[in-house]
Amino acid sequence: MAIITRRGALAAGALTTIARPTLAQPRYPARPVQVIVPWGAGGGTDATARIVASLLEKEMGQPFNVVNRTGGSGVVGHSAIASAAPDGHTIGMITVEICMMHWQGLTELKRTSYTPLALMNEDPPGVQVNASSPYRDIKALADAIKASRPGQFKASGTGQGGIWHLALAGWLGAMGLAADHVRWVPSNGAAPAMQDLAAGGVDIVTCSVPEARAIIEAGRARSLAIMAPARNPQFAAVPTLNETLGINYSVGAWRGIAAPLNLPAPIAQALTAALQKVWNGQEFKDFMNARGFGMVWGDAAGFAQHMERTDTTLGAAMRSAGLVRG
């Protein structure tokens, strides 16, 4: 690192350069760590990353600074994490989109471009209908969908090809129907979709239950099922697809911490151990429960497997929905 001292030139004295030791660091972390978030400040991913960062800071004794790197629908931030120096001083929160974007030909990046550290959260999609809808349970809805003509039912929840669209496509596929048997109405996120559901504009919204929660609690919508292996203790009344339909289909929007590829093993192990403590800690639990976010843990190997599974499932769903390119 070149260091130019210009103290003489800068007579104002407002500036002093400081030399940074670049010797091999005996202990990690030796300086503040950057936590890159590929999504904007204020969203759910940002909030999760910020609580994880503040708890990691306590755990490891160095500042963990959250930096939002937005742009390119997540591509910019994800590639910033992958292309950082693998020294443990830049890590990031990667999201389910990393298992989707490469299928669409949006980026070369995929799950294998990272050193996985820990899976922190996963929210499965739910199946929500308007409170005045005639379908009291998921079975009635599923039968009605099977009996309907293609395109008669309209569903929403996110943009075309987004995670909740794929959830619907996958569920229809598991029932032996075409991916577009229920027509997808793209929306700008879950909140407008839930609003349109309440206004009677669409029949089904397949966003996660925490996203739908306020409208459900206001008595304007009902959640009929979640597409997960087990019920969510936060919303214990909502059954899984497997319980009611015998369809063992589950996907979810997950968030995990990862580092650039080739992170030295001791650093990776230290980070995973710290993240496990964070995940088990009361503060993280309180935060996740308050937000209604699903708590799912995976260590480095578990996270890697989880990503591989997601990648396959979503790849198949995207292929059936005609979204795979290149």
Binding site: G43, R213, E217, A218
Partner: peptide, 30 residues
Amino acid sequence: PALLFGIPGDTITAIAIGVLYMKGLNPGPT
């Protein structure tokens, strides 16, 4: 709409809804 249905009216209330949940003030008629 933010307080009654948890639907953000703009980007600011979108952030505020997150904070409401975290503080146990869940949006809704209740």
